[in-house]
Computed example of a mutant assay.
Amino acid sequence: MKTLLLKKEEVRGLIRMKEVIGTVEEAYKAFNSGQVIQPPYIGIDLPSHRGEIDFKLGYNQGNEMISMKASSGGFTGNPEQYGVPNGMGTVLLFDGMSGALVCVMDGSLLTGLRTGACGAVSVKALARKNASRITSIGTGNQARMQIRAIREVMKIEEIHAWDHHPETLARYKADMESEFGIPVLTANSKKEAVENADILITTTRGKGSLVEAPWIKPGTHIVAIGADAPGKQELDPQIFRGAKVVVDSIAQCVEKGETQHPINAKIMARGDIHAEIGEILLGRKPGRKNDEEVTIFDATGMAIQDNTTAAKIYRNAIENKVGAFFDFLE
């Protein structure tokens, strides 16, 4: 069995955001249908090199694929010292029935795509049907990816944005208005931005509360992306009081997600989590109850999302005869 090699630009041309939204929905449903084996992911912190690398591994009975993704970040000196990006990713796909390596692909785009898509999936399941204004706290690559995905599932009339750095905020406004033709209103404060949100997206690397509970208006849907490790935080834990809390994985979110903080503060218990999102997509639990409810989607990212998205890229590559084959066993 030969192995397919897919480089970054080849991967870029093999998948569209609408397809990624479908693969993420597939992943969540598989996870809550007992089709997934997904060990806890491993992270290695390398403070002496100002970087970290995570490894996520998953098996999906539905597509008979095993995936392993290595994803690095930080490494601030990389471009100058080594001529490589600060963050990189590699995905290995193995045939689930034989264990043979069938594909090696660049994974640097995949993580951003499937993380953006998870926000769109949550908007479909949990946001008000008449939601039209999005607020982004943080204006980096993932903030942009969230908009790219969410606009596939709803009409965005305006974007409100805030960032610590005025020059970054100005660049975000220019780029997003150019790409989508959607007006971007830059806020003078976090409070101002949040108070305008029908849908609030947080995509920072925060280590403290950025968004305060009194700023959240009834009916807001919150997509909490930034917290994916112990100690990371973007939301005031009081926001969770009385909200409908939905997560990608309970096991991950109570330890590494935004949900760790209200649980640690005794504002809520693990049992107060309404659902894993796959349960809502499968129709086992309800989504939004009314237009006044505050809903929170806490996403830490799961290997099964990498699995289904990488498998779709692989299938598209085979169908379109993209990539180069090699044989480890020769």
Rank of each mutant, 00 (worst) to 15 (best):
T3V: 13
L6V: 14
L6R: 04
K7T: 15
V11R: 04
G13Y: 06
I15T: 06
M17S: 08
E19N: 08
I21M: 10
T23S: 12
E26I: 05
V36A: 04
P40G: 08
I42R: 07
S48K: 15
D54P: 09
F55H: 11
L57F: 15
N60G: 15
N60Q: 10
Q61T: 11
I66T: 13
A70V: 13
G77M: 09
N78F: 00
P79D: 09
P79E: 04
E80Q: 14
Q81R: 15
Y82L: 14
G83Y: 03
P85I: 08
P85T: 07
N86E: 05
G87Q: 01
L93Y: 03
F94G: 10
S98M: 03
V102K: 15
V102P: 00
V102N: 08
C103L: 12
V104Y: 07
M105C: 09
M105G: 05
D106S: 07
S108Y: 05
L109Q: 06
L109W: 02
L109E: 12
L110T: 15
C118V: 14
V121M: 10
A125D: 01
R128C: 09
I134V: 15
S136I: 13
G138C: 11
Q142T: 07
M145K: 11
Q146R: 09
A149C: 13
I150W: 00
I150K: 02
I156W: 01
E157P: 02
E158C: 09
W162Q: 03
H165D: 11
H165A: 10
P166M: 07
T168C: 12
R171H: 06
A174N: 14
M176G: 10
E177V: 14
F180E: 05
G181Q: 00
L185Q: 13
T186W: 01
S189F: 08
V194Q: 12
L200R: 04
L200F: 01
T204N: 11
R205V: 14
G206M: 07
S209F: 00
L210N: 12
P214D: 10
W215Q: 10
I216A: 07
P218E: 08
H221M: 02
I222H: 03
I225W: 07
A227D: 03
A227R: 01
D228C: 05
A229E: 04
P230K: 08
K232D: 00
K232E: 05
L235A: 02
D236W: 01
D236K: 01
P237V: 11
F240S: 00
A243M: 01
K244T: 08
V245W: 03
V246W: 04
V247F: 01
K256V: 00
K266H: 13
A269C: 10
I273R: 01
A275R: 00
E279D: 14
L281W: 02
R288D: 01
E292M: 06
V294D: 09
A299N: 04
T300I: 11
A303K: 07
D306S: 10
T309S: 15
T309M: 12
A311D: 14
Y314Q: 04
N316G: 02
A317S: 08
V322G: 07
G323Q: 05
F325I: 03
D327S: 14
D327I: 10
L329N: 14
L329Y: 15
L329G: 08
E330S: 09
